[in-house]
Design a protein around this nucleic acid. Structure first.
Lengths: 237, 237
DNA sequence: GGGAACAGGTTGTCAGACAACTATACCACT
DNA sequence: AGTGGTATAGTTGTCTGACAACCTGTTCCC
């Protein structure tokens, strides 16, 4: 995470905005900038990004007002980022639930997506993402043991397998191929997300590729509707 | 729409960014600001909003780069193509159901996404896509009347609004921005797709942009699970 | 060949000034 | 007393200029 003042201000300001009721008028820009310890120009850059996300409404001569309170993660899908990173950028406070880490043997399905032999040793990492004590996403990563061993997760692991791999830089990641589905929740997922079986979920199933084209992670993410907005730009041929 | 320089620069810059290949390095901020006729500070505010959307990657001392935002998809989401083409690509023989064409007045929601005044005249085109006598997708396009008039659809229309616009070439289409959701079917959609209310559906809500940055079509597509596979390639920043 | 220093160029931030806009207070008129 | 017009204070929107921090490429020295 960058050390620039902008990043700090962006997240502090997002927290402030999210903590205020709709229609609250924020302090003036010069006042806010002083309070947050940055120049007004840097503050304005942060304001622009929140304005673009629909979190605030700004009126010249009047002031800046908090818009809506629906906490939503809004992101394009083109850049590969962890949900935690996206949440932080959006100023949404999320909390990792307790990790469930297991060693499993690859069945046919997992063997196929990870290009391994049936029976190969895998590390399976599952976790829930909460906001306001409410589970909003359930993430399950399954990786070859040589990429990530079970005991590797005991030392200060922060919860995001993708962030860990990106930070580690070995193997170097290049892209993921993500399949998008709408599903009804299975019992495992329903239990994790505290919803009913067959409730509607958006599911991403992603194969994460390293630079030498190896599949290093098979990640299934389940998202509760209303908390995430994902978009893609599609071009005319 | 505001008359502030920021808004103009934001849209001009977005066009520029969208027209460039991935990894292209943009001109320096001072150069760009001069070219676009604004101060560097205003340019930076626009840059911030694009950075937040994942459209650009900025590196201090290096420059600003276009992020690959064209998802290279197996099933046609990379390129803007009609659902009919995508269905064929997926190996499905599909049939168009009967068109439902109406003239409607823009409510606040439609006025907002189409950048029109509330009450503006719109053409609404709804149709179902069948395979093996089974409805598998329900598509609703809503367009400004001057883009597509109701009586324009009587002469040899094939069923796909997008194909019609592409073939016609006026206005010239450039891209769509598509938001992806999992929803439970509303009664209208459930009726069209012959499923239960609240059954799981994948929904794409797309704003279709012409070359001059006008939203020329708002298209909502509902997909029954199991008949389509949509992929997106997400790249490491 | 490798490392250090330097130059040139870029983004990141700051400070200050002024333009454009809005809300409120005050005054004059009916 | 009520209404309309104007002035003032305060706000966001934009511009300008300067400097910090960072990055890349080149040159020089060991």
């Amino acid at each position: 995470m960058s050390h620039f003042p902008f990043r700090r201000v962006q997240s502090e300001l997002a927290e402030m905005i999210n903590s205020l009721p709709a229609e609250t008028r924020l302090p003036s820009e010069p006042t806010l900038a002083k309070q947050l310890g940055v120049s007004r120009a840097t503050l304005r850059e942060a304001m622009r990004s929140f304005e673009g996300q629909g979190m605030i409404r700004r009126r010249q001569g009047v002031g800046t007002f908090v818009v809506a309170k629906v906490p939503v993660l809004d992101t394009g899908l083109e850049a590969l980022e962890s949900i935690e990173t996206i949440a932080q950028r959006s100023g949404l406070t999320v909390r990792m639930g307790e990790l469930q880490v297991q060693q499993v043997a690859a069945d046919e399905g997992l063997a196929a997506v990870l290009n391994l032999k049936v029976g190969a040793d895998l590390t399976r990492v599952a976790r829930i993402i909460f906001t306001d004590h409410r589970p909003i996403a359930y993430l399950v990563d399954t990786l070859p043991m040589d990429i990530l061993a079970v005991d590797e997760l005991q030392s200060g692991f922060t919860g995001s397998v993708l962030d860990l791999l990106l930070r580690r830089g070995d193997p170097k990641l290049i892209q993921s191929r993500t399949e998008i589905k709408a599903i009804g929740a299975t019992s495992e997922v329903a239990r994790a997300l505290q919803i009913q079986r067959e409730d509607v979920l958006l599911q991403f199933a992603a194969q994460l590729y390293s630079e030498d084209s190896r599949v290093v992670d098979y990640s299934i993410s389940y998202f509760l509707p209303g908390y995430f907005r994902f978009h893609v730009v599609r071009r005319v041929g």
